[in-house]
Nucleic acid binder design. Sequence first.
DNA 1: GGGGTTGATGCAACGAGTTGCATTTGCCAC
DNA 2: GTGGCAAATGCAACTCGTTGCATCAACCCC
Lengths: 155, 155
Amino acid sequence: MQRRGSTAVESNTWGSVRERLRERGLRWTPQRRNLVEVLARTDGHITGAELVARCRVADSATTPSTVYRTLDVLEELGVLQHCHGVDGREEFHVMPASEHGHLFCKACGGTWDIDDAEASALLGALRDDRDFVADLSHLTVVGRCRQCAEVATRG
Amino acid sequence: MQRRGSTAVESNTWGSVRERLRERGLRWTPQRRNLVEVLARTDGHITGAELVARCRVADSATTPSTVYRTLDVLEELGVLQHCHGVDGREEFHVMPASEHGHLFCKACGGTWDIDDAEASALLGALRDDRDFVADLSHLTVVGRCRQCAEVATRG
DNA sequence: GGGGTTGATGCAACGAGTTGCATTTGCCAC
DNA sequence: GTGGCAAATGCAACTCGTTGCATCAACCCC
Ligand SMILES: [Mn+2]
Ligand SMILES: [Mn+2]
Ligand SMILES: [Zn+2]
Ligand SMILES: [Zn+2]
């Protein structure tokens, strides 16, 4: 089986992006291919600025506006999600092992995942009381962790 | 009782700002006084950019960096808090009637407050399970409200 | 393969916010 | 009132991200 130049992207989700775009009358361009290849090699959380930098490795002519617009499109396609870091900046989730929210300690900068079970207390209450379906993967909770609370109390 | 030029700010919290600054060795400047006067006239949520604009009404020479730095100081003094709008931008709470979190519908842009009782489900779980003290006033939950969920299902 | 449609790109200008640094000034002690 | 110290200001430069618009090119149809 011979490998042609334009078929390097694989791995379920990413391999289907071209098709998902076409279904909506959208186009598969070299710039989008470059970004998708970068995303396919990434996991965890990553900012737009960092994605621009990584795209520039393969294509030094990469333009921020194109990357940000493509990220919007990929999120609409549902192959990507974002949340907000403790400073409010967008961070993109690339293929999380499982859906999760985010817990930040504003004192030590520590960060933890909030899983479905843990979040169901709030999310379930909102759903039952208001029929409001909250987005766990977009959730960021900020506060003070055990260690930092202890330090503050002792101080 | 004669009113002197520098005693216009009143109303409990705002009137005490000068004193709170001095306790920490910080200074009461015309720029800070202007911002505090603007804040005393404001309620609800407001962005930094909007506060800069309002400060400029009284002092057209207002500089953004000074305003943003003063907002940081006021937040450290505890006379101000911020949360994040649906786009992640900081919004300052000025004297809320009661502490609350924020609920956003990403479809219709609707927004609601989350009160203490409603949030205690999640916040209590985090406290019990992890000794994590979450900050309700910083909390923003995004999702889809009842009406928007119905529309999506029907469509 | 060639042509036309329309979505995508690149660019330039802009807005929001941050930071380092030289200068100014509030505040306190005398 | 005067002087000195340290905090605050203003400015310029910068980062990150967004938007309008002219140009380009992916895709579809023949
Ligand atoms: Mn914040
Ligand atoms: Mn968001
Ligand atoms: Zn901590
Ligand atoms: Zn809605």
